[in-house]
Amino acid sequence: MTALQEVIQVPPTGKKVRRRRPSQSAHRWVLLAVVIALLVAWEAVSRLEWVNPMFVSRPTDIFAAIPDVLGDEKAVDALTTTGTSIWWAIVYAVIIGIVGGYLLGSVQVLRDAFYGPVNFIIGIPKSIFIPIFLLAFGINTQTAIYYGAFSGIFYVMINVVGGLDLVEDRHMMVARAYGASWWYRVRDIVLPASTPGVFAGIWYGIKNGLQGVLIFELFISVGGLGSLIKTYTNRLEIDRVFVVVLGIAVISIVLGEIWSAIERRLSRWRPSSTANADTGV
């Protein structure tokens, strides 16, 4: 019976069978309906003046304000500035974090000495170091980049270390038995085995690097979206605040979804896709 099962279990076409039940995508429609309902409710609450329309905008007005913001030279500048800062913050955080993480994870003494401290740093609110960054690097966008990178680096490191712990001895043994040199062992065993951790690390690096830059910009005026939001808020241009805030929110969500789609694709080989190197925040 088992032998028979072995034959029929996997279809001989070499393709996985995809069963698609009709109800499988039903929840998408419900989700869409819920999102629309929320927007409608918001609009209604605002129109009925249950809340002060001066302080809380409404979807239609926000929508109408999109061209205003896009036409505002200052807004476009701010977006460019912040986008650039975030980009570099992430690049630094990811590169330094990955290199540091592989070092920390593979050199035993380093791990003994510094894994604990790095883990502790992760739990520290990074914002308390902003004053030191300002003193050391001055009030400018470059400092925003450094602070953003600093906010992300440790998450990357810890997750890369977590990824290295996923490398299995038995796979290293196979590599050795089949004559893999040091380079092949790194490339074909260590790197792929640790990708889940590296991916989680890059993700946390992006998330925290982005947040770090935004926090920095809100803390001190160095231009960028932080300043823009503050300016709009002070001028009570609430529609515009919402355009910016919700715009960034939507971009974040879309990027996040794209990211997890890529990750799912790259980790098709994994038996379960939840081997997430957990780090907390």
Partner: peptide
């Protein structure tokens, strides 16, 4: 996924 910090001024 949303950076909540952006809502803080509001």
């Amino acid at each position: 996924l949303v950076p909540h910090i952006l809502f803080y001024p509001l």
